[in-house]
Design a protein around this nucleic acid. Sequence first.
RNA 1: GCCGAAAUGGUGGAAUGGUAGACACGAGGGACUUAAAAUCCCUUGGGCAUAACGCCUGUGUGGGUUCGAGUCCCACUUUCGGUACCA
Length: 946
Amino acid sequence: MEYNFRDIEKKWQQRWVEQKTYQVSEKSDRQKFYVLNMFPYPSGAGLHVGHPLGYIATDIYARFKRLQGFNVLNPMGYDAYGLPAEQYAIQTGQHPEVTTMQNINRYREQLDKIGFCFDWDREVRTCDPGYYHWTQWAFQKMFNSYYDNDLQKAQPIEQLISHLESKGTEGLNVAESESLVLTADEWNGMDEKQKSDTLMNYRIAFMGETMVNWCAGLGTVLANDEVVDGVSVRGGYPVEQKKMRQWCLRVSAYSQRLLDGLDTINWSDSIKETQRNWIGRSEGTEVEFQVADSDKHFTIFTTRADTMFGVTFMVLAPESELVKELTTPEQKAAVEEYVKYVAGRTERERQIDHKVTGVFSGSYAINPFTGEKNPIWISEYVLAGYGTGAIMAVPAHDSRDYAFAKHFNLPIIPLIEGCDVSEESYDAKEGIVCNSPREGVTPYIDFSLNGLTIKEAIAATKVYVKEHKLGRVKVNYRLRDAIFSRQRYWGEPFPVYYRNGIPTMMPEECLPIELPEVDKFLPTETGEPPLGNAVCWAWDEANRRIVDNKLIDNKTVFPIELYTMPGFAGSSAYYLRYMDPHNDKALVSEEADSYWQNVDLYVGGSEHATGHLIYSRFWNKFLFDLGISRKDEPFQKLINQGMIQGRSNFVYRIKDTNTFVSLGLSKGYDVTPIHVDVNIVSNDILDVEAFKAWRPEYNNAEFILEDGKYVCGWAIEKMSKSMFNVVNPDMIVEKFGADTLRMYEMFLGPVEQSKPWDTNGIDGCHRFLKKLWGFFFDREGNLQLADAEPTKDELRSIHKLIKKVTEDIENFSYNTSIAAFMICLNELGQLKSRNRQIMEQFVILMAPFTPHLSEELYEVLGHATSVCDAQWPSFNEDYLKEDSVKMMISFNGKARFPMEFPADADNASIEKAVMENPQTAKYMEGWVLNKIIIVPKKIVNVVLKK
RNA sequence: GCCGAAAUGGUGGAAUGGUAGACACGAGGGACUUAAAAUCCCUUGGGCAUAACGCCUGUGUGGGUUCGAGUCCCACUUUCGGUACCA
């Protein structure tokens, strides 16, 4: 009887739904296990074979854990807000909700065919009001919180307000945009608007006037991780820097906790390292510089405090507030022109050419160590957003300062003994300090670094600076606050209205504030975001509801925020929502949260390292501070599945003809390689007739064949429609079945590794499943199992498998456990085994990989319950013991011949047997025995000397 | 530039410091069949042999540690990710 995978898979998929096999509840005595995939954005193109890779890996682990007795949560949902749906809406007028729902349905259809054990009752969609209710809610909580640096924790804003009321900013150690100094009287004397503006300096969700990545092509601002190489990740439009009023999240407040938390979680070193770099902690010193002939002063940040004596000029960022202040009247025109030039440069231009540009401000700063007057320059190589936006330049020991000094002919003072700075700067942090101060120069201060190592010099300078109140030790982080508003339609609306220009939160009980309908998805004619097109988008404060715009009177009816939230808003806490997805009273109930805790295993691509995986950790830490989330870190273990690349095929057309020449013969011709649809190529052999039918222009194509076949070339490229190398999982399921697809995707190689999809090898897995089927049934369909007690050989074979598969699944080494299945089945085949007990264990071991087939065979074996509720077999070491062991005899490390010994042979008897073996004498000729090294069950190495 | 990962047959990939190339694909040969499909068996890193199934060589390159190195150490080359005027 044939292995009819179509009927089997259909039958079990139906039964799983009917019997709610995958429904889980937190009301369980069993230990919990939470596995999670990064939920997909449902794109219009549907799933290709690369998408399910991570889902299958997770599914196998989830099923394995369930068989081991855990109560496993394995949910799935959709990250449904996003740009592509909106772009499509702008082009076609189709509402993004309509296309999004279509795409979701298509995804679901495709996912259902692969046989996942998702609990679909827990599905979430970020665009669902019941879901984004809690996104809005969290935003309001962030608005109403500030970050206390002493407690390292978010606190209610009311506490800060009462502090300001009684003490002003005195004794305040909190995360802030800029450090303000206020007395209690000053605070109490402020009007409502001033107070609101001041609090924005402290709120965790705040409105700030900041430099943003403005993408004109998309008509919106973007977060740093959404910009790569100066262009937008989506669409590749140029991005420029622009100062705009935006909602921001004070992610930077959590920098240290985000850094420290990395040590407590089980993620790959490379991802942790990427996050550490992104957070970019740097310990340094802030030093005050007095401006010459003026009472003005400013602060710089440096990690090289040891180089104070080598400063020859100062540099300000062109966007710095200091520029205006320090420019002298004579230089005003030149500086203004330069600032204008820099403003006109896009991010991309700045990144591509590092041109040395700059202008002199006219002012000088007094070096507190040397007393020298250093000219203050303005240059784009200093960034406004990092440190203080001002630096001290030490051209001898910083390559950027060096290039600048060379270009503008500024002095260069070497500070390390023996370093040569005639051609380039000496950036290394090694050597002995000299010229600090220089010989022959009257010391300005009583302080010398000469003779110290750089490390010592940095430490000594820090102490000096602190003691003499010249500055302070400071830790800087590269991590920036996240820009949290987007000028788009298809996102979560802000639950905020403007009460006389003051951003005001709508009452918590009124959430969710639903996304209004608009007739156009483009910005309004006056340049407002798309929500400006909404007719019904005003807040009636008294009646606490949304009303028509026309009613706005700014007395009782006020305008509502037109911005929407960015993509990461909805994806930051979705793992909590899965625990309790239908709760309309809370993000997650205490009961569900304390049972499920956090995600034990998270699987997704490493491209989210500096985006989602930072935001999510931040968001979770905030909720942890609020007592909502139980764990400080949301994802305990992270596996980054590799990308599935495409394997493209090429045909070779001889130039200016319609003749195609096979790969092996193409060298003799002048040919153009042309991508050909991989679906009409099999094992690199082109289906010539299908090719002719593929495109009209190939109707009358001619071919030069080799051995009667047309062999195609191939290359590994990104999987994309334009390369004709997209392989769809539905087609594979249709042809080979879901179990084969699941198995083959895992057989391709380690989950974490990127690899090309090659349909060619799938036959091997399919054949294996057919073979397994053949173990149960003969040609006529009669069950051919024996009820006998298993033999020793059978037991050894299956227990070897149990051991291997159990260990491999724990290590996500799925490809090797599949190999083990194949080996075991071959062994059982050689033993002519049809033992019922053995096969039952085999079927259970296979269940995570091939759930449909395992269910069917489990039923055939006479079980009325699902194989999901079977018990994972445990192995017995006793069965693994062999009667005899084969060992390789080697001489001086070179393997020579094998010998067999009784399993319990001791070293002495092995040595004796080896030395008595006639072959040994041959290899020992001309040598003297030195020693014999015996590696149990592996090798006997006879070490010889002359 | 900096950080990270990797490099093994025609291909995907296996190898707690212990017979390198498991398992699979592909390829070649054979069996069954009128034929094809399906299935099964044999061979398959390279070279030299094939009278003697034996010898040599082989995991990016060059060194080192070790009785023994794909694996550990040092230097280099290449590839792929990430990141970048972050002071």
